[in-house]
């Protein structure tokens, strides 16, 4: 992995590398969020996932989230790496690290980042279930589409 704070990668994510990017001598708190591939979702078994991204725009949108966080929590530093391609159970899909002098901001900014990723970053995941496959289309992951296509809805 490079030193870029915002990355889309195809190789496995090394959490220590992301933490290193945000470490600072004036920061006493670092929070990380690690999103892994979950085997079971409401009783359905996942065999593996496939992530696809519109890479240049995804990197831009991750950086935009970083800017938003810099405005809301000025003392923080954030790094986000999202992996694409095929991911097996327990592999890391996304890692977010936030450093801050004080912990409250580190938690808040981190949670804000994952929420925003699910809203504006052009990355899609396809669930390969034990009984079929589905592109997941709801940004907040609450409603997996029953068929292979999303229910149409206005996202603007």
């Amino acid at each position: 992995m490079s030193n870029n704070l915002f990355e889309i990668v195809e190789e496995p994510i090394e959490i220590n590398a992301i933490i290193k990017k945000v470490e600072r001598r004036e920061a006493g708190a670092i929070t990380t969020f690690i999103g892994t591939v979950r085997e079971w979702t409401r009783g359905k078994q996942t065999i593996y996932l496939e992530y696809q991204a519109y890479i240049p725009m995804a990197v831009k949108m991750l950086a935009k989230i970083g800017e938003e966080i810099g405005e809301k929590w000025p003392d923080t530093k954030i790094g986000i790496t999202h992996r694409i391609g095929r991911l097996d159970i327990s592999e890391i899909a996304v890692a977010i690290a936030v450093s801050s002098p004080h912990r409250k901001a580190a938690y808040e900014a981190n949670e804000y980042a994952i929420e925003r990723i699910k809203q504006i970053v052009p990355i899609w995941k396809k669930e390969h279930w034990s009984d079929g496959e589905t592109w997941i289309g709801d940004q907040l992951e609450n409603v997996p589409y029953e068929s292979g296509r999303p229910n149409v809805k206005d996202v603007e």
Partner: peptide, 10 residues
Amino acid sequence: VAFIPPVSGG
């Protein structure tokens, strides 16, 4: 131009 279906990263 890219069409962006509802995203599901994370």
